[in-house]
């Protein structure tokens, strides 16, 4: 369980984030939403200890995040970056195997995990492909496979996804978020995804946290948070509603 209490970041005169309070429970997918500059990426960086809070605290399983050892935290918490640029010639399997750094696995076990994780992201047989020659979407899925390998030995992982669907086509956007949901359901993961597509958030997230101007504007289930009125209040844009054949309401 990740508990965030009175979290603040930035100069007191110009806070980037202030008074953030919420709890993230194992086994659930959370969407972190908000307009550009709302503080979503900063919050994600605080959650993975990339930044240190100015005020408040973050606790993982009741222990302050800064008290966790580097290796212990790396085995529990993985981050999928928005972009991962590599200017050197690596094979796909070598990139995925980097996820094994904090783990104590034999090279045979790593090779087996690499194939398993690549299969999970739909890249079976890509092991010997040149990472530099992959499309942006394929690279993002390779990076996801690397993070999955990093979290392969825990059943209480925390997966932080920074705009995981930004480089993906429609089908892979859904596959990646289905995978995130499966990890939450089957392996008790906490998944936190920064998303811009509200429909994806509505479909895959159990909980929504909407940030606006560095403050937590709204928390709750997708149905309660993602109404045209709330969206207009945060994004200052009146979305159109569309009811699909299966009864779902989509916002554009």
């Amino acid at each position: 369980m990740l508990k965030i209490t009175e979290l603040g970041f930035g100069m007191p005169s110009r806070p980037v984030l202030s008074a953030i309070d919420f709890t993230l429970e194992q086994g659930k997918v959370y969407g972190l939403l908000g307009p550009n500059g709302a503080g979503k990426s900063t919050l994600l960086k605080l959650l993975c200890r990339e930044l240190t809070p100015a005020t408040g605290k973050i606790e993982l399983d009741g222990i302050a995040l800064n008290l966790w050892s580097r290796q212990e935290l790396a085995c529990r918490l993985g981050v999928l970056p928005q972009h991962a640029k590599l200017d050197f010639p690596f094979q796909v399997a070598e990139v995925v195997a980097m996820g094994a750094f904090p783990l104590s696995l034999s090279s045979q076990a790593i090779a087996a995990e690499v194939s398993h994780c690549l299969a999970q992201v739909g890249l079976n047989g890509f092991e010997e492909r040149d990472y530099g020659k992959l499309s942006g979407g394929e690279r993002q899925r390779v990076q996801l496979a690397r993070v999955l390998l990093q979290l392969s030995q825990t059943d209480r992982g925390i997966l932080l996804l920074d705009e995981p669907t930004s480089a993906l086509d429609l089908a892979h956007q859904h596959r990646v978020l289905q995978l995130a949901r499966n990890l939450a359901r089957e392996r008790n993961f906490i998944v936190v995804a920064v998303l811009h597509c509200l429909n994806l958030a509505a479909e895959y997230c159990d909980g929504i946290h909407i940030l606006d101007n560095g403050r937590l504007k709204l928390s709750g289930g997708p149905k309660a948070c993602l109404t045209p009125e709330q969206i207009n209040a945060v994004w200052h844009y009146q979305p159109s509603r569309f009811v699909a054949d299966d009864g779902r309401t989509l916002l554009f």
Binding site: C48, R70, L73, L77, V79, L86, D87, F88, Q150
Partner: peptide, 13 residues
């Protein structure tokens, strides 16, 4: 080579 942040997330000092 992945980036300093990514290396830190993997538990590297």
């Amino acid at each position: 080579l992945l980036g300093e942040s990514e290396a830190r997330h993997l538990g590297i000092d």
